[in-house]
């Protein structure tokens, strides 16, 4: 079975999905990713799906679930590079991936993650000040 590589970049994890995902690959990715977030204490996850042409409802739900799991572990998920056809399919399937942030490309996704991280840091600092 193919495994999808998870790369660490500073405080963020980069997942680039280059192959057509089947259900088992998707579940394995979920396992690996949650393990890696905990191991590296990652603050954010970038999922690049620009080379994914086809999605079904399972993969769509898997993306949403992964994002929810990452949030539980205090990491933001940004999906980047979704193809128009994939976006249309997901909307037609009724999966609007609420709670998943998205960006046009890796660069924008990284900026988004950093700005989110800054916001949370500022909030934490505020909370600390009040105390």
């Amino acid at each position: 079975m193919e495994r999808i590589p998870i790369l660490k970049m500073g405080r963020y994890l980069l997942v680039s999905i280059q192959v057509d995902m089947d259900d088992r690959t998707a579940l394995a990715l979920q396992d690996d990713l949650t393990a890696q977030i905990v191991k590296h204490r990652a603050k954010g996850v970038l999922v690049d799906i620009s080379s994914l042409d086809v999605v079904d409802s399972f993969i769509g739900r898997m993306l949403a679930n992964t994002a929810a799991m990452a949030r539980v572990l205090d990491a933001e998920t940004v999906v980047v590079g979704m193809q128009p056809s994939v976006a249309i399919t997901l909307v037609e399937l009724g999966l609007s991936l609420k709670g998943v942030r998205s960006a046009l490309n890796i660069e924008r996704g990284m900026e988004l993650l950093q700005s989110v991280a800054r916001d949370t840091e500022a909030e934490t600092a505020d909370a600390a000040d009040e105390e």
Binding site: V80, M82, A87, L90, E92, L97, S102, L104, G109
Partner: peptide
């Protein structure tokens, strides 16, 4: 709303 949702999924 569908169009808006699809654009949002792509990050716009």
């Amino acid at each position: 709303l569908k169009t808006v949702a699809a654009a949002r999924l792509m990050g716009a």
